[in-house]
Simulated scan of single mutants.
Amino acid sequence: MNDSLHSQDKHPLYDLLLLTFFCFLGGMVFSFLGVLIFSIFFNEQSLLDVISGGQLYQNIYFLRCVQIFSSIGIFIFGPVLFTVSKKYPFTNYYQFYKPTNPILIILSITVLFAALPLIEWLTAWNNKMVLPESLKGIEIWMRQKEDEAMTLTKQLLIMKSYTDFAINLLMIAIIPAIGEELLFRGGIQQIFGKWFGNPHIAIWLAAIIFSAIHVQFYGFIPRMFLGALFGYLLFWGKSLWYPIIGHFINNGSAVIMAFIYQQNGKGIEEIEKTDNFPAYGYLFSALFTLVLLYNFYQKSRNRV
């Protein structure tokens, strides 16, 4: 994982803390910029009205503006600052330098679609999680956080026009696909790889953090699985473009489906209803995903 870039580095923990600091700094600065942009485009009085009316987190334009800018600050600006501070070549460190292979791109996309039923099953299984009675308070808190996240997601997914659709595609698919892969796969996974000397440990640790940072406990397992999937696409493909493409397909398909549903007069609640596949459908999804991943691995090896 770009060992030549790290020959004179300090302990990887230092890099992890430095990267975290820059992401925090980027989040703070760009969140402020988001509020500033909102006040400019919707005038300062609109912002004051929203705040004074206690509707700060109910205004969809405010939410989108802050979400877009804070995501850029945390997931893009933070990792960029990290490489600048360490004097690393950005394209080399985050593995953008290697040309992509059309076959591997197609496999990246196909893997994501093949895994959808499996992810659905993992989501349903994770959602049935029940903690022991002694941890009931924690379970109630986890459910509250899950409900809050779901309420926010529903607000953001409301799309009444093609402009809303374009903004949501940028906010939910494009920025997270690029930014989250920069941070978690390009940055954190690479740091853990240097720390532990084992790419598989690095992939799964980065996937765990990727899932945990979303603070959605009843979607933790499927999101961790996705994170690991993206991690292996990077590890085998040696290019960050493969997990970026996979991430975009995963998030973008959800935005597109939500928009189509609403254009056909269906409510957001309809999107939550998933198709119930028979047991062999989930098994087929798992096996087909493994076959495609193995194929991706073999194709990527042939290019080395």
Rank of each mutant, 00 (worst) to 15 (best):
I103M: 02
G227A: 11
Q262A: 07
V255H: 10
L56H: 01
W204P: 10
T100D: 01
Y61W: 13
I208A: 15
L116V: 08
F248T: 01
F210P: 00
L16M: 14
K160I: 05
N250K: 04
I105V: 15
N59P: 09
S134G: 00
V291Q: 03
I106C: 09
L107P: 05
M159N: 05
G237H: 09
T100K: 03
E120P: 05
F277Q: 04
I260S: 02
F165W: 14
P79F: 03
I191C: 12
L183I: 09
D275P: 00
T110D: 08
P117K: 01
I178L: 15
V304T: 13
L81G: 03
F277N: 04
I178Y: 01
Q144K: 08
E146D: 14
I203R: 10
Q190S: 15
N250H: 13
S134Y: 10
Y88S: 03
Y282L: 09
D49H: 11
N198M: 06
D3L: 10
T274P: 00
N43G: 02
A254M: 12
P89I: 04
G252I: 04
K145W: 08
R301Y: 06
G246C: 06
F184S: 15
G54V: 01
K160S: 14
G26R: 04
F192H: 00
D275T: 14
N250P: 09
F210C: 02
R185H: 09
G219W: 02
I167L: 12
V80P: 04
I201K: 13
K10M: 05
I174R: 09
G281D: 09
I249F: 05
F22P: 02
S71H: 11
K266I: 04
P102S: 05
G186F: 10
I167Y: 06
K128L: 13
L169C: 08
F196W: 14
